[in-house]
Computed example of a mutant assay.
Amino acid sequence: MRAVVARGAGDLVVTELPAPEVAADRLLVRIVYGGICGSDLHYAKDGRNGAYEIREPLVLGHEVVGVVESVGADAVTPQKVGDRVAIHPATPPPPPGGVEGAGVNTQPGGTYLGSASTWPHTQGGFTELLEVLPDQLRALPDELPLRRAALAEPLSVALHGVRRLGSVVEGAKVLVSGAGPIGSLAVAALKRAGAAHVTAADLQRAPLEVARRVGADAVVQLGVDPEPEPGSFDVVVEAAGVVPSLVSALERVRVGGTVLQLGMLPAGPLSVPIAGLIAREITLLGSQRFDIELDDAVRMLAEHPELDAVVSDEFTLDEVTEAFARAADSSRSCKVLLRIGDAE
């Protein structure tokens, strides 16, 4: 079977790997779509993602959906061969419909598809066949196309962040700084949670058009449009993952407001003026991946076909170099998908 493998900085290949034989308590999924995430881009370009460095060839990918190919003899699961599914990338995974508070996203010792944070590395989902645990699977409604369902993992990240904000979202005036895939999906999640007005800000015009299509009430192209006044938002969601964006978020939020750090910031010490956070009693929240939100993400994607706008490009495995180059260019893309297999 073919898989997308990062072997080090600047060394990304599609290679043949042995096809897995399904264990008795597991299932095999034929992967149809995989979404390219920022962590995949870092592994491919730099050979590392934050503090986690590639020390052995790593199959990338954790935003994957597909079709059940086979079921182990002892697997306890409602899924059967031919069922279309989304995949929770964490192990141990929460059970479908699990109770909030399990916290698989912050438990020590857990693993995540396509991650060099463990040794041996946890191999990812950009592969034609993937062995999974029964609790990793979420059945897809008939009305949800697999192409849109590939957004389930990043939408879960956005939903988890909005859930971290709690009741402060309802009726709030919100700024989302960074309108890439996570930022645009955060816009949709915030509107669904009751935000009164959501402004999306980005350096590029193209992602702002996506943010508007999925629910943004206003958009600001930084460096081109007039910028929001300091202290003019109840909540700011930092979704760009860069220090200047966080600095701006702390300036734009009102006294007593809340900043959600949704983007992944660089590892190591960062130069951020925190004095204003203290003096203005700002709440700063972190958000790590997601926990039980995949079920909610699947339902939301089925109900909101306008979220198709977040998918900007689709490439085949034979076009993986072009796919990663497009995904790295935020002026030309939003969410880039790899078409790994067929649905039928």
Rank of each mutant, 00 (worst) to 15 (best):
G35Y: 01
V198P: 01
I282W: 00
S115I: 05
R30V: 09
V187M: 08
G97K: 06
P305S: 14
V13C: 14
I292W: 01
V336F: 05
E229R: 14
I36Y: 05
L301E: 02
A206M: 15
T283W: 00
R164Q: 15
Y33Q: 10
P108V: 08
V198F: 05
D342K: 13
V242S: 12
S167L: 14
E153W: 09
S156Q: 07
D308R: 12
A201V: 12
D291A: 14
A193T: 07
L129G: 04
V29T: 07
H121D: 12
V29N: 03
V67N: 05
L140D: 03
F315I: 07
G231D: 11
L130M: 13
P226S: 11
L151M: 09
G231Q: 10
L265F: 08
H304E: 15
R7N: 13
D313W: 06
D291C: 08
G241T: 09
G34H: 02
V14N: 06
S70G: 12
F324V: 12
A188R: 00
L133W: 13
G257W: 00
V255H: 14
E53G: 07
L250M: 11
L155E: 02
E16P: 02
R164M: 12
V76I: 15
A179H: 05
L185K: 03
F233M: 10
E63M: 06
I54K: 06
V132N: 00
E306L: 07
G10Q: 12
A193Q: 08
A172Y: 00
A279W: 10
A196T: 05
V336E: 09
L155C: 07
L190R: 03
G341V: 04
K45C: 09
V198N: 03
E209Q: 13
R7E: 14
R280D: 04
L285F: 10
D329S: 13
A193K: 10
D308E: 15
D83C: 09
A309L: 08
V81H: 11
D25L: 06
V247C: 07
V243G: 10
